[in-house]
Design a protein around this nucleic acid. Structure first.
Lengths: 253, 253
DNA sequence: TGCCATAGTTAACGCCGTTCATCTTCCTAA
DNA sequence: TTAGGAAGATGAACGGCGTTAACTATGGCA
């Protein structure tokens, strides 16, 4: 019956203040809202995704669980909002690393990859929430989200742009263009829908290939799936990064 | 107070039958045991890892929840046993694919990779349980398991052997040996503990690099982390497989 | 001043894992 | 053949969970 319950989108009945200082009510609301999410993150960090519970959050805040329903429609909605925040945080970390890396695309790629790994290793629980096994509630969210504004798109953009700059400069080696056109190009509509046709297929391939390699290695490290093989996953990571970047800078095949 | 509760390891007080026909009791026990795990898997498939509950299993079996404690010490122990079975199943699928692929290592690598993806895509919930975000109870299991008999070791063995055969034949390109010795070799004790020193560092690198690429791509597909980019992840997979194998067969750098 | 949306409460329902005391059934050892 | 004990299964209970419904207090605006 109630309207959708999220953020400060409640827009007080009368305009109150169109753009200037928010109402006292609004200030309190946003404050409580972020306190809830902070508490949820704390639980996430200490006990994993399943440890996030309305009752625990409320207890920690000196409230009762049903009160949280004034701010989120369900536990899933809360977790979803938290996931959105974390996605933005990670995106910004990566984007900042790129900005701080100077103008060389090779340096930029390395900086972004290291920043991604750094954040992930430092925040394994958060990584699990947004990039691991998606929870049942999150799956629906991902499917319902229209492709154009999917958080993954914004996250991948700086990678994509850098790989493109690299391509313009180096014309690095890729699988044969005919093969890529034939087997891959037909299935890239989703990506085209968000990035347009501005990138050649070589760039698209290099981006997807690189992202999957980065993701695979980092998530194996974060989830301890490398413990049986390597004592310091960072060394393996640097090795792989070297191999990936080398692909772009050595002479073409 | 009770002894550890798993499998048919209860060993009836008196020897009863050392090696021949198992007791009626034992037959019933193993039958119930596997029925519990089957029901658990059914719940896993239909509702994800969190849907596995003792009460639901018991309900479906016409029992009460506490009865299951005669067979498993806890829900975590049950899930852990199920994960072990699934690991074995996946390992066998991959090993069989290799056997059916003839003698050429390149063909073998492709067959194993495709078999791995095939099983994973066909059984996403099972994949999530054994290769995704580890549940809190599973983490302890992985850490307590002595490295030598870690299921991951047996799973990776056919890959490792094939990559080695490929190396003996092709002497494919890798990162410079000096770099690998310097940065990677010092951190491979866990892998050496299980496989011995029989493999040169080039093989180890190619194996770990390939496994992480395979894992990354497949888990992104299984977890729908590629939906925003690619409509048919299989095409991207074949592309990446091509690029990986090509690395081994084209002329050395 | 009166109103009413907003924030918060208590109580309850049905899930869950787990423990405990209890009962039945079956196998074995005397 | 029978007594005893182990193994299997039960019902009741505890505390925790998400969620709903009915209810109370309060702050800000007409």
């Amino acid at each position: 019956m109630n309207g959708v319950n999220y953020g400060n989108s409640v827009l007080g009945s009368q305009g109150s203040s169109r753009l200037s200082a928010p109402t006292r009510r609004e200030r309190l609301r946003t404050s409580t809202l972020s306190e809830i999410k902070e508490e949820a993150r704390r639980l996430l960090v200490t006990g994993g995704p399943d440890a996030i519970s309305l009752r625990a959050i409320a207890r920690e805040m000196g409230m009762t669980a049903p009160a949280i329903y004034r701010y989120f429609d369900s536990l899933d909605a809360l977790v979803e909002a938290l996931a959105g925040d974390l996605y933005a945080e990670l995106s910004e970390v990566v984007a900042t690393a790129k900005q701080d890396a100077g103008d060389d695309p090779v340096t930029q790629v390395k900086a972004m990859a290291r920043a991604f790994r750094g954040w992930s290793v430092a925040h394994p629980a958060e990584f699990a929430l947004i990039l691991g096994n998606p929870l049942p509630g999150i799956v629906a969210f991902q499917e319902s989200c229209d492709e154009e504004h999917h958080p993954g798109v914004e996250f991948g953009r700086p990678f994509m742009e850098t790989i493109n700059a690299l391509w313009l400069r180096e014309r690095y080696a890729t699988p044969p263009r005919t093969l890529m056109e034939e087997r891959l190009a037909a299935h890239l509509e989703p990506l085209r829908a968000s990035h347009g046709d501005q990138y050649p297929i070589e760039v698209t391939w290099a981006f997807l290939s690189g992202w999957s390699r980065l993701y695979g290695l980092v998530s194996m490290e974060v989830f301890h799936h490398l413990r049986w093989a390597v004592s310091d996953p960072g060394a393996l990571f640097e090795m792989e990064l070297h191999a990936y970047v080398d692909q772009f800078t050595s002479q073409k095949s």
